[in-house]
Nucleic acid binder design. Structure first.
Length: 229
DNA sequence: GCCAACGTTGGC
DNA sequence: GCCAACGTTGGC
């Protein structure tokens, strides 16, 4: 199902790699996905996996940093514009190292699912555009690269710990929806009831891959039409 | 740059 | 399995 097939794997896997994303999709051993079935040891990883009872989601919010920031000498910058400029306007979403976020990437993000592209750790945090899943769960290769800031020596190719998906640029929002505006709506909905009362942006603020209910998604998309603030 | 909130680690 | 120490996230 991989729709587009960029050049072969030839391209260098080096570039902006952020806490979550970076370059384009390259082909990965999709076959090794079966490895994810295995859970040889039950440690605190398992207790962190306990979100499998949550409903299945079809909408997402992905955080990325639009400004340069070095982590072990590697620039974490990956803006919405960087996604647009990526080959095929597509990038893998690598570098996620949180079990809850990993589980969403691995288990729930499916072809065609849409996501808000959120700019974090910047002057004006907020949602800037839309992207969509164009390739489902496969091992995040950065976990195997000792030079990568997100290298994980405890992970093996036979039993990879971290996964990623590919996302493709869809469109910018008609207007930027700032965190401040979302927070106002959220706080109002907490007090008076409303679809954003449990928005993960505020209830699970540190999650970099966040699920949205249909109602949350629809409400935020409608904010796009309103006149700012 | 500060720091609150929260996730992870490891001793016990 | 508890919990203190530590590390990270990310708004401000």
């Amino acid at each position: 199902m991989p729709p587009k097939r960029k050049a072969q794997d030839g391209n260098v896997n080096i570039q902006s790699r952020a806490t979550k994303r970076n370059k384009t999709n390259d082909k990965q051993p999709e076959s090794s996905q079966k490895a994810q079935k295995q859970h040889p040891k039950k440690t605190n990883e398992d207790k962190n996996q306990g979100n499998d009872v949550t409903p299945m989601y079809r909408h997402w919010l992905l955080k990325s940093e639009p400004n340069s920031r070095l982590e072990n000498g590697v620039d974490m910058k990956f803006s919405f514009d960087d996604l647009k400029k990526s080959p095929s306007q597509t990038s893998c979403w690598d570098g996620v190292r949180n079990y809850q976020a990993r589980n969403f990437l691995r288990d729930q993000m499916k072809m065609g699912h849409e996501a808000f592209f959120y700019h974090s750790n910047c002057k004006e945090p907020g949602i800037i555009g839309l992207c969509k899943v164009v390739k489902e769960s496969y091992p995040d290769y950065t976990q195997f690269d000792p030079k990568d800031p997100h290298y994980d020596h405890t992970s093996t190719k036979d039993n990879p710990k971290w996964f990623m998906v590919d996302v493709k640029y869809v469109r910018p929002l008609q207007r930027f929806i700032s965190l401040a505006e979302l927070k106002k709506a959220h706080q109002d909905h907490v007090r008076n009831g409303g679809p954003l009362c449990n928005l993960a942006l505020f209830t699970k603020a540190r999650l970099s891959v966040q699920p949205l209910t249909q109602e949350e998604w629809d409400f935020i998309l409608k904010m796009e039409q309103r006149d700012g603030k």
